[in-house]
Every structure is written in structure tokens, then in C-alpha cells.
Write a protein that binds this DNA or RNA. Structure first.
Lengths: 336, 336
DNA sequence: CTGAAAGCGCTTACAG
DNA sequence: CTGAAAGCGCTTACAG
């Protein structure tokens, strides 16, 4: 606690010679107050640099004006999804800030589900934001069972009964593939995500759509799955080059896999982008810092974070459940 | 709010046929309670999956058990310091979690200082954690003027009157340079940080110490300053190669600058590490994902985060101001 | 060891 | 439009 002498609305009340009810109304811009009294009180508050006690207000209003960002512990160093999650968290923070909500970081342990009760039933948060994870469905059920508002970064599914925000994966796949077609590539391979992954499925559908639209045939030999990690980019690319050494382009569904793929291509004696052009996905910070800057599909992280914030708060206040898809854009750098 | 029927200690009190004072004591493991009553009450609470209202408890105890992590808005995309900050934030979160404290993300706007009052005087946080920034001193003064406990990631300075935690920059500089000496390099250059930067000064002193210990002379021609950004790594390395085309190693004070430096070295027709060995600093995620994995000095982010959490909480509780230096280690990969 | 009461700093019907 | 009072859900001296 600070050292100031004017710390409660009661102190202000005394200074202004009114009741604390009136001070409360003034500071909250209630309609039940004489505008002149209000301005006088506000001036006094201003003059004393008064900040009212928010926890007390929230207790009284039975809300916390705080949202929990659910993340797992990172004992074992960072993976890339973590990086994406951290970048978006920052954007969520700005979004919430504008709405008068705070962002609390919730660290859940691997097989633990108590965080949900611990944070919601204790009144510490009014709702949750989660990145899509393997356990997405389980957590979704957990939260909806306790009637907690929440929003998930990921494609909406019938099993998930909360809000969702996701990038436009279909358009992303189309943009990436059309770019490779436009620059004259003949044999365009596809290095995707896990089969069950809805995002990856849509990106693949985008790839197929663009190919068909361009009158190209779709060759299953040129398609392989990965798991977004570096090693699977390496393995996937090796596999593709074995199956068809003549391929001259590849759309890789994630930036980290793309970096692995580029490594393999270069080690095989081929040049990027001259011999094989590579387009990634996500536009993580590493896409720029990589010493062969990546041409990639940018997820609009700023907008996504803002939408996650806005729609969750809306859901908290009104119960409305929304699903939104955020546009993506192609960023052309050096790799394609 | 959830849908459960047992929501307050009063509900538990009724079920257990005791007063809510007693329930409070039981749940808080007070010594002023009969162990049997305590266990009985705890069992009832457990059975009903009871979570007590933390904001109410905190209001009563006049604390928030919450710490603010001060970060600026990232409207314009991410810089590398941001990445470091985000990684460490995650570690701080785990550390606080173990101490029963929550982590709140505070977004401050560029020239705004109101966040300090807004979060501290309003009782939303009990203290602050900040990354070192150019404005470190100003913020430090702001916070100590309001008597707010805080901790800064950075070298301690007389002007900063709060806790600090920093990596062992001197040892880091020595480790990096000794490695280059050990692998037989003759002309080892130094690409540093800004002159005013204390961390950079210590890393430079480490470089000089290792050189002297090995009986090497220190050649000012082989030393140049940067600002941790990619472009300054590029410019700095060009400068060094012009001044002495024969250099066969360089210790770069930051991973991102190191990536820029490698690019320049390779474009000049030299190979890394065969012709010029490069050691970076920080071991950011990009050090691994880079397609020439970086040999670098790793900051122990996990431990640093934990120490930031522990020492801040200690300072909140006891007022003790601590300064700690965290060990670093050399990670040998491909670039040297 | 236990309970009744006052208090944490706000909000908000209720009465005027 | 304003104030006195009750209440948000806890904690903690105080009295027993």
C-alpha cells in the first residue's frame, strides 16, 4: 500500500462534505448525481491523485474484471506453439486493457484440472482464454460444466461450446499455393500438419483448391504430414525429395517446419528459392530473423488478440457465444 | 460465477454447525482451532468442492497476492528484447505460482506513467516486475517514491532502489571468449552492445579478461559497438571485416546481432565456423531454430524467473532489498 | 478452542 | 439529487 493520505472514497467524502455514496456515484459517472457536485468531487479526487480500491469495488459488484490466460508450465524450454501463444497473449493484453479488464496468467500443471475451479469459483477471474491444445475438448467441457465463459484460439467445433477465434486457414492455404503457382512453379509439394488437426486440414484444402483452380492435378506423392516441430519438417522434406526429386516448390504448414525443410533442401545441394521455393505459415518472429527470411502466411496476431479479448468480454457480459475467422495475408520475403 | 450451491464460508458453517469464524480458521490452518473440528470442516469443504472467495480474503487482509509484470504495448510487432521478456515472464509465472501469488500483465503506453498508481494505489497488485529498459531509472524512482516493492531484471545500480536479478555477464563474456581461444582462434573480434549499457560493459570486460589471461593483446580495431538489433549486427560485422579481413572469430553480445553477423560473414565468401567462428549471447529460441544453430551463452531463464518471483515476494513481505546474479553457461552448437 | 461483532473499501436498493 | 444502511465474502481482535 502506498503512503498517500487520501486513500478511500470516505476520505474524499470528508473533503467534499458529502456522503461516500455520492462520491461513489460521482466517480462512476452515475446518472443519479448533480453534474456540478460530480465535477467538484472529481476535481478533488484528481487533485489528490485518488485511485479507488478496485478489489473492493469488484467484491461489491461480484465480478473481477479479470480474465485468465491459460498456459502450461514451460519447464522444458520453449516450443514454437509457445512462441505463438506468447505473441498472441501480448495482443490479448492490449485488447483487454482497452475494455478495462486485466490479464492474469494461469499456469496449469500437466494433468491437473483444478485450475478451473481454483480461479473461477474463487472469483479471481470472470472467464478464460485458451490456446487450442490436444486437450481442448476436455477443458472445454470442464469450463462449460461450471458455466464459465471462455474463448479458444482455434477452429470452432460442435464439441466446443465456447467462443472461438481462428485464422482463415483455407484462404491461407490458397494464398500460399497461388503464390507458388504465380512464380511459375510446376511441381508444388505440400508439407502439412497432423491429420486430425482441423487447421491443417483447412490449409490442405486451400492447397488443393488453388491447385484445382489453376488446372493442376493433385498428386498424393507430393503430400506428407508433419507435427509442426522442427524434426518433422526435416523428416517430411526428406521424404518428399525421395518420392519426387524434381519438385520445385513446397508449401509448409508452419514456419518452424519450413526452417527444417529449407535446411534439408540446401543440404541436398538445391538452392532456395531458385531450385525449390518454400512458403511457410504463421509468420513467427523467427521467420524474419532466420538468415533466409521466410515467405510465409501471416496470421494477424494483433487483430486476433483484440478479437479474443473483445468477444470473451462480450460473452462474460451477455452470454453471447461467437465464432470469428480472422483474415490472413501473404508476406513475400526471400524463400519463395 | 459458477452454479454451485455451496459458495461461501457461511454455507460451510451451516453445514458444519459452527460459526464462519471457525470455518475461516479451519481453512486457514489457524492454530486457534481444535484439530478435529478443523478436519471435519475441511472434509465438508472438500466434499462440496469449496473454493473460497480470494478477492474477499485479500480485501480483508489488505493485500492482493498479485504481482504486476510491466510490459509495453507491442503494436508494431515484436523485437528481440520482447522475446526474451516473454520467455522470462513465463518462468516468473511458475515461480509466483509456487508462492501463491498471481501474475498480472500490465501494458503501459509509451509516455504514460499512470500505470504505477493505477495498479498499486488501487490495490490490484502488491509489487512489480520490470525488464530493464532505457527508462529504468525513471520508473525506479516512480515506484520507490510511492513505496511500491519492485524488482528489475538488470545489473544493479546505485540509482535503482529496488531488487535486481541479472545474469553473470562477466562470466558470460569470459566463457564465450575462452571457447574461441580453446578452439584455436587467433584473431578474436568483439561485437558489443551500446556503450552505456552495463550488461554490455561487463560482457566486454569478460572478453578482455579472457584475452589477457591467455596472454593475448587487446586490439581496439577488433572491437565495435552495436545495439542488439539485427541491423547493427550486420553493420558491425561489415565494419569489423573491413578493419581486419583476417579475423577468424567474433564474440557477438546478442543472438540476433549474431545472426546478422553470420549473414555478413557468409556473404563475404567466408564459411562459419571454418573461416570465422561466431559465439552469440542469450540463447533465445531463435538460436536453435536458426539454420546454422548458434553457439551461445545461455542465460538461465528458468532460474532467473524463479528468483525474480521469490525475491520480489520476499521484498513485499519483509521489505528486504536483494541483488542476485544468476550463473550462465556456454552452449556449443554449430557456429563455433 | 469458539462465537459475535467490527472491519476491509466499495456499491446500490431504499427512503427522502 | 442525496444520505443512511445493508451487503459483497472474508479476517481477526475481543470476550468468553
Amino acid at each position: 500500500m502506498g503512503t498517500k493520505t487520501v486513500k478511500t472514497i470516505e476520505d474524499i467524502a470528508k473533503l467534499a462534505n458529502v456522503s461516500k455514496s455520492t462520491v461513489s456515484r460521482a466517480l462512476n459517472d452515475s446518472s443519479l448525481i448533480n453534474p456540478e457536485t460530480r465535477d467538484r468531487i472529481k476535481a478533488i479526487a484528481e487533485e489528490h491523485n485518488f485511485c479507488m480500491n478496485l478489489p473492493a469495488r469488484n467484491l461489491s459488484r461480484r465480478q473481477s474484471c479479470t480474465v485468465g490466460f491459460v498456459t502450461h508450465s514451460h519447464q522444458c524450454g520453449f516450443t514454437v506453439e509457445d512462441m505463438f501463444g506468447l505473441e498472441i497473449m501480448s495482443a490479448i493484453g492490449s485488447g483487454l486493457d482497452e475494455l478495462g479488464y486485466d490479464l492474469l496468467v494461469i499456469h496449469m500443471k500437466p494433468r491437473d484440472t483444478s485450475w478451473a475451479h481454483q480461479y473461477f469459483d474463487s472469483g479471481r477471474v470472470d472467464g478464460f482464454i485458451m490456446m487450442k491444445t490436444g486437450r481442448g475438448h476436455a477443458y472445454s467441457k470442464l469450463l462449460s460444466d461450471m458455466n464459465a465463459p471462455f474463448i479458444i484460439w482455434g477452429v470452432s467445433e460442435p464439441e466446443i461450446n465456447g467462443c472461438t477465434v481462428t485464422g482463415d486457414n483455407l484462404s491461407g492455404g490458397i494464398l500460399a499455393t497461388e503464390h507458388l503457382i504465380r512464380i511459375g512453379r510446376k511441381k508444388i509439394a505440400f508439407l502439412g500438419g497432423p491429420e486430425y488437426d482441423l487447421e491443417a486440414q483447412l490449409r490442405q484444402k486451400g492447397y488443393e483448391t488453388a491447385m484445382k483452380n489453376a488446372g493442376r492435378s493433385i498428386d498424393p506423392k507430393l503430400m506428407v504430414n508433419g507435427d509442426y516441430l522442427l524434426d518433422s519438417g526435416i523428416a517430411g522434406m526428406k521424404h518428399l525429395l525421395e518420392k519426387d526429386p524434381d519438385l520445385d516448390a513446397v508449401f509448409v504448414c508452419g514456419d518452424v517446419m519450413a526452417i527444417g525443410a529449407i535446411e534439408v533442401i540446401q543440404k541436398s545441394g538445391r538452392r532456395v528459392p531458385e531450385d525449390v521455393a518454400v512458403v511457410g505459415y504463421d509468420d513467427l518472429a523467427i521467420a524474419t530473423f532466420n538468415n533466409l527470411p521466410l515467405t510465409t502466411v501471416r496470421q494477424n496476431i494483433q487483430m486476433s488478440g483484440k478479437l479474443l479479448a473483445q468477444n470473451l468480454v462480450q460473452s462474460i457480459k451477455t452470454g453471447v457465444v461467437t465464432h470469428v475467422t480472422v483474415p490472413v495475408e501473404l508476406v513475400v520475403r526471400k524463400s519463395a
